[in-house]
């Protein structure tokens, strides 16, 4: 497998450029959402929910560390530097994930939608030509399986409980929907990613499968399909973020920025 990986890389800069871009998308998605998840600490509806959210937050940041480590191995600088000192226009996370947590309904719905997406994206890497990614995603998918199950359960129960819960879930759905576009944007190297076999599914194929599952999930709790996902004018994948990202980065990097050369 190592051979395969090395030959591919010497095949050209294209492979490496596409791969690094892809890894940055993965790392930034997981770090941004893990960071948002950790903001729920001490604020969840019950203590059990707090423990669960914290566990999920750690998994997400743990996955980000895995992707940052791969970038580091590819010569992209120290993982902490990547996480804590890149400007926002170099961040590749989808806009949906940088949005503030909102209420519980919004956080759960966003997480469920993202986890479904992430599961499909991981599936598309399970036979990746890049061995470290192939091996890592198998392990990550085992953890994500539980997140997905957890979020799906919460989504279904809140959505079918009627009353305020239902109203809030309906509002959350409307709020999430316009932000979904750039989630499925696989960026300027999508063609190369597919050609080199780094991934096996295109952004539009992931989106098709995602829509199929979300349609069923919405139907099962009596929600209507909100209509086609609007194409977004901005793409976080290309560094075009909303005004919600900078305050998040200011917090994330606050201590690191006191002295970025110090050992913390």
């Amino acid at each position: 497998m190592k051979m395969e990986q090395d030959t591919r890389i010497t095949d050209g800069q294209k492979f490496e450029t596409a791969l690094k871009y892809w890894l940055a998308c993965l790392a930034d998605d997981e770090l941004t959402l893990g960071h948002r998840d950790s903001e729920w600490l001490g604020l969840c509806p019950d203590i059990e929910g707090d423990v669960a959210f914290s566990s999920i937050a750690q998994d997400e940041v743990g996955h980000a560390v895995f992707y940052f480590d791969l970038l580091h191995q590819l010569g992209e600088g120290d993982p902490d530097r990547l996480a804590f000192s890149r400007d926002q226009h170099l961040r590749r996370n989808a806009i949906l994930l940088e949005r503030p947590n909102g209420d519980w309904a919004y956080s759960i719905l966003r997480h469920y939608f993202y986890d479904l997406f992430d599961d499909l994206r991981l599936q598309s890497m399970e036979s990746s030509s890049y061995a470290p990614l192939r091996q890592g995603t198998q392990k990550i998918r085992r953890e994500e399986y539980y997140h997905l199950l957890h979020m799906k359960t919460l989504f279904s129960r809140l959505g079918s409980a009627g009353g305020q819960a239902r109203e809030r879930m309906e509002e959350a759905l409307l709020k999430v929907w316009p932000d979904l576009g750039d989630l499925f944007d696989f960026g300027p190297y999508e063609k190369e990613l597919l050609e080199f076999g780094i991934i096996s599914l295109s952004g539009s194929e992931v989106r098709r499968r995602w829509e199929e599952q979300v349609r069923d999930a919405l139907l099962s709790i009596g929600f209507e399909w909100p209509g086609e996902i609007p194409s977004s004018s901005r793409s976080g994948r290309r560094g075009e973020h909303s005004s919600d990202l900078q305050p998040l980065l200011d917090t994330l990097c606050e201590v690191y920025a006191i002295d970025s050369n110090a050992r913390w």
Binding site: P45, D46, T153, L154, S156, L158, S160, G162, A165
Partner: peptide, 15 residues
């Protein structure tokens, strides 16, 4: 302010 979540979870069942 999140009593609604605990109440919803108590009265809802998995489909």
């Amino acid at each position: 302010e999140q009593r609604w979540v605990r109440e919803a979870m108590a009265r809802s069942h998995l489909p």
